[in-house]
Design a protein around this nucleic acid. Structure first.
Lengths: 184, 184
DNA sequence: GTCTATAATCGGATAGAC
DNA sequence: GTCTATCCGATTATAGAC
């Protein structure tokens, strides 16, 4: 019994990991259940033993991606400046792994239903709370929001263009501004 | 002959206007050619007399939306502060008309082909050039890029969440930061 | 150039064997 | 729980009448 339960959990995790990666890279519509299940090493038919619909998977996958990103960008208890450097890095810009869902899906949310948008909102609040916690009281709500927009918006805009030089410039300008935000 | 030519132009403009509105509101995948043509007052079959594919329409519609937004946000030769106020306004946040494609489609671009991304890049450059021109040499390239990210990113993030209070807060924080950007 | 009708395909969801 | 096979709706694109 315990065997089977844990096996199902493992399959579910594989599906979620595949979905988190695919959705953050390609968005909701351009990812099929087929893609997800093949990446997870299974076939289409097995999907509905784990999730009731593609939308439910999306919601769970976004949470999963958010947690993975939080773990990644918090590895080693970084300072604020180190976090900013890592978040707005070339490595994050072109990561082949799960990406932070906040910049990847920011404009996609306008088309999604309220439930999914609500999940996104919670992830954003988790992000700002982390930014707040990392500065240990030296910051305030406005500063943290500004930093969040610079990180999310900077990464989103840098990814959306073909001019690599401009892309790098955007990352560096946003990085500097985010670090200096507390001073104003 | 001139009649027919101009009639075709009028139809094409109607399609483009409908497409610009629908794409900026719902994104590429969630808009069908049917939707566009019905909004334009025609039927599906007429579409291919004007565009060779949905992707070609998308590209042209983005340009159209960019021009419409530029005209709208430049109406009356605004100062930089007035432009920022108008761009990050509640009216723009919830506009039922054509919206600026830059925040609407920022994360969608990651999934599009190079040609479409290149079009988006040109619109972004037009936006920054306008920000540069409006300040009449009092600004520099870095400041203008920072302001662009604050306007585009601020609007995109504000639209992506369900918490209205937080949404307004984001707009006001970004507005203030964009106005003060030149000072740093 | 615009219409109706249709071809061809793709993707989400279900049914039933194992 | 996972597989194969299938249904069904939606959508892009084309064909041919007017």
């Amino acid at each position: 019994m315990a065997w089977k339960e844990s096996h199902k959990q493992v399959s579910r995790e594989r599906i979620l990991t595949a979905a988190a990666k695919l959705f953050t890279h390609k968005g909701f519509d351009q990812v099929g259940i087929d893609d997800v299940m093949q990446t997870a090493g299974m076939t289409r038919g097995a999907f509905y033993a784990h999730f009731s619909s593609k939308t439910e998977l999306y919601e769970q996958a976004i949470i999963n991606a958010g947690l993975a990103a939080a773990a990644h960008f918090n590895e080693g208890k970084l300072s604020l400046d180190e976090l900013i450097n890592r978040y707005l890095s070339q490595a994050h810009l072109r990561s082949n792994d799960i990406r932070c869902p906040l910049p990847c899906l920011v404009s996609d949310m306008a088309h999604e239903d309220e439930r999914v948008k609500h999940t996104y909102t919670k992830i954003l609040k988790g992000f700002t709370q982390h930014l707040d916690a990392i500065t240990e009281g030296k910051s305030n709500a406005d500063t943290v929001l500004l930093q969040a927009v610079l990180l999310i918006g900077g990464m989103a805009v840098a990814r959306s263009i073909t001019d690599e030089k401009l892309s790098k410039k955007i990352l560096s300008v946003c990085s500097e501004a985010a670090k200096n935000a507390a001073a104003n």
